[in-house]
Design a protein around this nucleic acid. Structure first.
Ligand code: FES
Ligand code: FES
Lengths: 150, 150
DNA sequence: ATAAATAAAGACTATTTTATCTTTTTTCAA
DNA sequence: TTGAAAAAAGATAAAATAGTCTTTATTTAT
């Protein structure tokens, strides 16, 4: 479905939205641990997210780290996918034809178009903050470990 | 979305369903040309489809080639995905968590579950023959070339 | 029986994706 | 103004996917 890069990008962004802020920046070690992802690889992905679409903000040095601006929180989830070059899921043909269109539909197009429209809707209408809110709820999880009993 | 293997597998299967039969078996060269796929690689994929789930049938030697049995035509499209090990699209978590369940949902689960259900429905309720029928209609295409003006 | 046609099998190569490690730059605090 | 903390940048490595090529086995027709 999505690449590892996209999965880590989404999980990391959600975690930063949930736990970080301009005066509580999060370090790469904390983030990678929190979302069960390889640290150095996640660092690369966060670089992409800071460079593209302004999804994530960062500052270096002591007390530096990653956080989201208020504007970033309002971005659609699609902005995260785009930042890591993974929005093909809502643009491409399910059978891999070079274009997906009504004028040259593949045999699955008629059925898939509705699903594709819903995927697009989901990724475009949902904001990063929406996911963070969701994530704040009771049993919602973002990693592969046991639910925190706290 | 899907791997190249899965895309070629679907396109090849549809083409064989459409043009082949027990007494008109299709050669790998014809198939690969018809669906715009790399020939040797497509051959490998057809091997998988003949070994797994009985999706495709084949015979070697002169007048040999690939075709679909009547039983195969009635298989759900999912059988093709399974045969190439690509049914994760209807089983896995969109954020890459190890399990997707109501008891440990990720922040996108609530929204994605409906889409996932529709994907499953599409791949399980649609048969290979259904796609071939679709493909027989006017403008439906299965490769990247111009529409045959005939 | 032999030769030709064909898929199957296996070995190999190339490319992309995933992941790690090292060095550099920036920032802050002492 | 120096040292440490952090991300950025860059180089490298490993693994997975995509793709090719060669050899073998099977089948058919002569
Ligand atoms: S053309 Fe294949 S999904 Fe639209
Ligand atoms: S848990 Fe993520 S989609 Fe179900």
């Amino acid at each position: 479905m999505l690449s590892k890069s996209a999965e880590y990008a989404l999980r990391a962004t959600i975690y930063i939205a949930l736990k970080g802020s301009e005066d509580n920046k999060l370090g790469i070690d904390e983030i990678a641990t929190a979302i069960d992802s390889p640290q150095s690889f996640t660092a690369k992905i966060l670089q992409l997210l800071t460079k593209n679409n302004g999804v994530v903000s960062s500052v270096r040095g002591p007390n530096g780290g990653f956080y989201l601006t208020d504007a970033a929180r309002k971005l659609p989830v699609r902005a995260v996918l785009e930042a890591v070059g993974e929005d093909g899921i809502i643009t491409k043909c399910v059978l891999g034809l070079k274009e997906c269109s009504e004028s040259r539909p593949c045999p699955m197009h008629e059925q898939y178009r509705y699903i594709k429209a819903q995927l697009r809707q989901m990724f475009e209408k949902t904001t990063i903050q929406d996911l963070a809110n969701e994530s704040g709820k009771g049993k919602i999880v973002i990693n592969n470990r046991q639910i925190k009993t706290k």
